[in-house]
Design a protein around this nucleic acid. Structure first.
Lengths: 298, 298
DNA sequence: CTGCATGCATAAAGAGGATTCATGCATGAA
DNA sequence: TTCATGCATGAATCCTCTTTATGCATGCAG
C-alpha cells in the first residue's frame, strides 16, 4: 500500500489552492503546475473521498457542498503546518549552540562573544563546554571549537589559531632572580606542572632537547586556567598559550620572557557540518570570528 | 520548481510518525514503508529545514530541540486533516441527494421513501425534482430518476418500470354512461388533455389507429398530477401511468377500464455515475429499490 | 451568428522522486 | 565475544506525477 494512497496529501494541497481560487488554472499557477496536473490531483482526491468536490461549470468550477465543508479545514491545517515550519526556522535561527573546549571558551570566547551578541541581537548564544570531540549527529550543536589537524570528514573546519605554547610567569617572580635572560634561567624557578608534556617540547624548540623535569606524566586536561592562576600568583612558571593570556600580559600580571613558541601540530578549529554552512546563524558566527580573529582561515 | 520541494508534505507525514514512535523502523511499519524510506524522508526534511530534527543515538533516535518543537504541531495539523476527511466521508455518506422527475417523486418515491429512511436512519434524504436530464458533473446529485432508453455513457442505469399509460377515469363518470366497455366508449366522454401525444399511441394500441381528438399539440411536462386530479374529480378521462395511481384505484377514486397499456419506448431508470456504484449510500438506495420494486433490473 | 478565447478533461509519454534491496556500521546485551 | 537491534548509504527500480498535445463546451465580440 503506497503512502500517498492512504492519505492523499499532495492532492489535498492542490485542492486547497483550487478551492481558494475556484479555478484549476490559477491553482496551477500558484503551485507551479499545469492545469492538467491540478485536474488530475483533484480527480484523485475525489476518488479517494468517494464524492465530487467540484462542480464543473461552463467557465468556472465551484465547490460542491462536500468541497465547501472540506476546504476551510484543509486550509487551516496547511496554515498550521506552514507556520510550524516557519516558526521552527525562525526559532532555530535564533539560538546558536556552541560546543567548545573549556579553555577556549573561558579565555577567548568569553571575552569576545559580547560583540557577536551586539552585532546579532536576534541570536541567543548557548555555550557548552566539553573536552570530547562531539559528533554532530549524536549531539545537539550548531558549531564546535576543536583542536586537531583540521580534517574531519563531513565537517567544514576553519583554522582559528595555532595551539602553541611558551613559558609565562609573573614579573615579580622573574625579578626575583634578576630577570629571565636565557631558557636555562627558567630552571632556577619552580615549574608549576613539571609533568606537562608541553615542557619538553618547548625546551626542545628552545635548543635544550635534553631537559628532564623529572615530572611524572600528568594530563593537563582543561587545567590551563589553574596553571595560569598559579603563575599570576607568583608560584612558579607555567607553560601557556600566549594568545589566551595577552590581557594578563597587558595588565602586567604575566610576562612572556621568550618569543620561542612551540606546538604539537594540533590547532584550534571552528567546525560545523558541511551541509549547514549556509545557515544564517552559522554564517553570522563565522563572519564574526573572521573579523575578530586575524588568523581565521577558510 | 517541484511541488514537493516547496513544502515537503510527505516528509512531514513521515516525520510525524517517526516523532511519535521515536523510531524510524516503527514509523515505517505504521506507514507501510521500509526503514530506509523513512530515513530518506527525514533527511529530506532536515535539509529543507536546515537543521537536524533527530539525534541518532546508538539504539534509538531522539528528537532535537527543534524536532521537539515541530512534532506536536505537525501532529495536530495532520489530525485536523485526518478528521476533516473523516467527517467529510461521514457527512457525505449521511445525505442522499436524489434528482427525480416530479411525477415519479410524488407518485412513487413519496410513498415509499419512508421505509428507506426507517431502514437507513443515518442517511438523510434530500429530494430535488427537475424534468431536465441532469449532468452529474455539473449538478450536485448522488442518484437520479430518469426516463429514457437506459443508455448513458459513464452512468450506471437500473431499469425501474415501464413508462406505459392507459386511460383512467372516476367510477362515477364511467357509470354515467353505463360503464366503459370498449375503447370507443371513451370518446363519449370529455378527454382531459386531448393534445396529449399519448392518446393517439394508446388508441392505436387499442386497435383504433385513426382516432383524432382534434387537440392541439401540448406538452404535458409534469402535468400528470393535474390531469389525475381532474379525472378523480370526474371532469373527464385522463391518460395516466397506472402504477402511479394504483392507490387511487384501490380507494375507488379511479378505475382503469382496459388492460391495454401503451408506451413510447422510454422508461424509468435509476441512474448514477458508474464510478460511484460502491458508495454505501448509493448501494443502500439501490438495494432499497430492488426490494421495493419488483421490476427493478441490474 | 460565426469565430475566438477561456477553462477543464483526457490520453499518451516522459521525468524524476520515492522506495526497496543489499549492505555496512555502531552499540548494547547475553 | 558474538549476536541482535537500529540507522545510514549506494545502486537499481518502480511508479507517481507532470507535461504535451489535444478536444470539448461555453461565453463573448464583431
Amino acid at each position: 500500500m503506497k503512502m500517498s494512497k492512504q492519505f492523499p496529501l499532495n492532492a489535498l494541497r492542490v485542492f486547497e489552492s483550487a478551492a481558494r481560487y475556484r479555478s484549476f488554472t490559477k491553482a496551477g499557477d500558484e503551485l507551479g503546475l499545469t492545469q492538467t496536473a491540478v485536474s488530475y490531483q483533484i480527480k484523485l482526491l475525489e476518488e479517494n473521498v468517494g464524492e465530487p468536490l467540484f462542480l464543473r461549470r461552463p467557465r468556472q468550477v465551484s465547490l460542491t457542498e462536500a468541497g465547501e465543508r472540506l476546504a476551510p479545514r484543509v486550509t487551516e491545517a496547511f496554515e498550521m503546518l506552514r507556520d510550524a515550519l516557519g516558526n521552527l526556522r525562525e526559532a532555530s535561527e535564533g539560538t546558536l549552540l556552541i560546543h567548545s573546549t573549556a579553555t577556549f571558551a573561558s579565555r577567548w570566547l568569553a571575552r569576545h562573544i559580547g560583540s557577536f551578541q551586539l552585532e546579532n541581537p536576534t541570536i541567543a548564544v548557548r555555550l557548552e563546554t566539553s573536552e570530547t570531540l562531539i559528533d554532530f549527529s549524536k549531539t545537539e550543536a550548531d558549531v564546535a571549537i576543536r583542536t586537531g589537524k583540521g580534517e574531519w570528514p563531513g565537517l567544514k573546519a576553519h583554522f582559528l589559531m595555532k595551539s602553541h605554547f611558551t613559558p609565562m610567569l609573573s614579573p615579580e617572580l622573574a625579578a626575583s632572580i634578576g630577570g629571565i635572560n636565557t631558557p636555562a634561567d627558567l630552571l632556577k624557578l619552580r615549574i608549576i606542572d613539571p609533568g606537562d608534556p608541553w615542557w619538553p617540547m618547548w625546551f626542545s624548540a628552545a635548543g635544550m632537547p635534553d631537559v628532564d623535569l623529572g615530572g611524572r606524566p600528568s594530563s593537563r586536561m582543561g587545567a590551563q586556567a589553574i596553571e595560569a592562576a598559579a603563575a599570576i600568583a607568583g608560584h612558579g612558571v607555567a607553560i601557556l598559550k600566549p594568545e589566551f593570556y595577552a590581557d594578563d600580559v597587558a595588565l602586567g600580571r604575566l610576562i612572556q620572557p621568550f618569543d620561542i613558541l612551540s606546538d604539537e601540530g594540533s590547532h584550534y578549529w571552528l567546525v560545523y557540518p558541511e551541509s549547514r554552512r549556509n545557515s544564517p546563524k552559522i554564517r553570522a558566527f563565522r563572519e564574526f570570528i573572521r573579523k575578530t580573529l586575524p588568523t581565521f582561515g577558510d
